[in-house]
Amino acid sequence: MDEFELIKRCFADWPTQHPNVLRGIGDDCLVWLDPEPLVISVDTAVIGRHFPEFANPEQVAQRAFLPAISDLAAMTATPAFFTLALTLPKHCNGDWVVRFAHRLRELAAQYNIMLAGGDTTLGEQLTVTINVHGRCPHPVLRNGAQAQDDVWVTGYLGQAAAALPYVLANDEKEVPMEWWQAYWQPDVPLEFAIALQGCIHSAIDISDGLVGDALHIAQQSELALHLNVHDLPLDSDLKAAGENGLRCATSGGDDYQLLFTAAPMVREEIQHLANQQGVLVTRIGQTREGKPAVHWYDGDRPVTLPWQSFTHFNKES
C-alpha cells in the first residue's frame, strides 16, 4: 500500500465522529469549531523505549493511545478528537498496519474520540505520536490544590512497574494477570474523572511514578503533601513483595491512575461517584501549608523513600 491507500484502507471512515470537526481526514488541516475550552496533549511512543521490540500491533496501539487518554482524564476533559502521526519501518507491512488500526479503532470507540487526521511516513524506527484534544468548561490544573485538601488516588499502584521485568522477558505465565493487564492495557478512569468536575481542586495522572507526580502538584500549588505509605493501594501480591512492592507503587510509573486533591467535605460525594463508576479510590494523605515538598509517613513516623520517579533523560532510566 502507498500512503494514500493505507489511509483509505486503515484510517478513513471510522464510526466515531464529532459534530465540531468540520473537516477531518482528507485535507491539509482539520477544522474545529467550538466555543468551549479545548485541552490538548501529545504523547510519542518509540519502539524499545515505550514498548518492547516484540510487541504485537495491538499492544503497540494500546501503549501509544491509553497514556494520551490518561492526560485528558487528568484535566477532567471529555474526549473530542485525536490525530495520529505514524512512522513505519519496512517490516511493518500491510497486515501489521491493519491490525494496529483495528485495535486503535476499537479504543477510539471505547473512549468515544474521533480520529480527525494525522500523517504517515516511512522511517527506520517504529514511532507513534498521538495528539489528543478534549473539551472541558473548567479544566482541572495541577496548581489548584488548597491547604487541608484530602489527597486521593484511583486504582492500584505499582502493578505495571512490577510486571515490567516479566514483560521484557516476554514471560506472561510468571506474572499475575492483573499486572500484565496494567502494563499492556491500563484501565484509564476517564468517566470517573469527568464526573469529578466541580468536585476536586487539582489533579495529575500518575505516569512517571507517585513520588515525582505528587511533587508536581506540591510545587505548582505551593503546598506540602503529607502522604502515608501505609495507605497506598497495593494489591495482595505487591504487599507480599515487601520493599520491592512499595518501590513499584511509589516510583515505578506507568500506572495511568489519577492523583487528585479535594476538600474533606466532599469525601462522601467522591466515594459515591467512585462506586457508581466501579472505580477504587483511596485517601492517602493531606495537603498542608509549607514549603512545596512531599513528606512521607509510616503511620505517624516520618520516613525517607530512597527511590526517584522515572525521567526520560535520566542516564539510568
Rank of each mutant, 00 (worst) to 15 (best):
I194G: 07
A195L: 13
L196T: 15
L196F: 09
Q197R: 12
G198N: 01
C199V: 15
C199G: 03
I200V: 10
I200S: 05
H201G: 04
H201Y: 04
A203G: 10
I204K: 15
I204M: 09
I204F: 03
D205E: 07
D205I: 06
I206W: 05
S207F: 09
S207R: 09
G209M: 02
G209S: 03
L210S: 11
L210D: 08
L210P: 13
L210K: 09
L210W: 12
A214K: 11
H216N: 09
Q219P: 06
Q220Y: 10
S221P: 11
S221T: 14
S221M: 05
E222Y: 09
E222I: 05
L223N: 07
L223Q: 04
A224P: 04
L225V: 13
L225H: 11
L225D: 06
L225A: 14
H226S: 06
H226L: 07
H226D: 04
L227D: 02
L227K: 05
L227P: 01
N228I: 05
N228M: 01
N228P: 02
V229G: 00
D231E: 05
D231S: 00
L232F: 15
L232D: 05
P233Q: 04
L234D: 00
S236Y: 00
D237W: 02
K239N: 13
K239I: 07
A240H: 14
A240M: 05
A241C: 07
A241E: 15
G242H: 02
G242W: 01
E243W: 05
N244Y: 11
G245K: 09
L246F: 07
R247M: 14
C248T: 10
A249I: 04
A249M: 05
T250Q: 10
T250V: 15
G252K: 09
G252R: 00
G252M: 02
G253F: 05
D254L: 10
Q257A: 14
L258T: 12
L258Q: 02
L259G: 05
L259P: 15
F260Y: 15
T261K: 08
T261S: 12
A262E: 08
A262G: 12
P264Y: 01
P264A: 07
P264R: 04
P264V: 07
M265R: 15
M265G: 12
R267E: 14
R267V: 13
R267W: 03
R267I: 06
L273Y: 07
A274N: 15
A274R: 06
Q276N: 08
Q277W: 10
Q277K: 14
G278M: 01
G278K: 03
V279D: 03
V279C: 04
L280Q: 15
V281K: 09
V281I: 15
T282R: 12
T282P: 08
R283D: 00
R283Y: 06
G285D: 01
G285Q: 01
G285K: 00
G285A: 00
T287V: 09
R288T: 09
G290D: 05
K291I: 13
K291Y: 13
P292I: 13
P292Y: 14
P292L: 11
P292G: 14
P292F: 13
V294R: 06
H295F: 07
W296Y: 07
W296D: 04
Y297T: 09
D298M: 11
G299C: 03
G299W: 11
G299I: 09
D300G: 06
R301S: 14
R301K: 11
R301E: 06
V303P: 06
P306E: 01
P306K: 01
W307L: 14
S309E: 01
S309H: 06
F310Y: 15
T311K: 12
T311R: 14
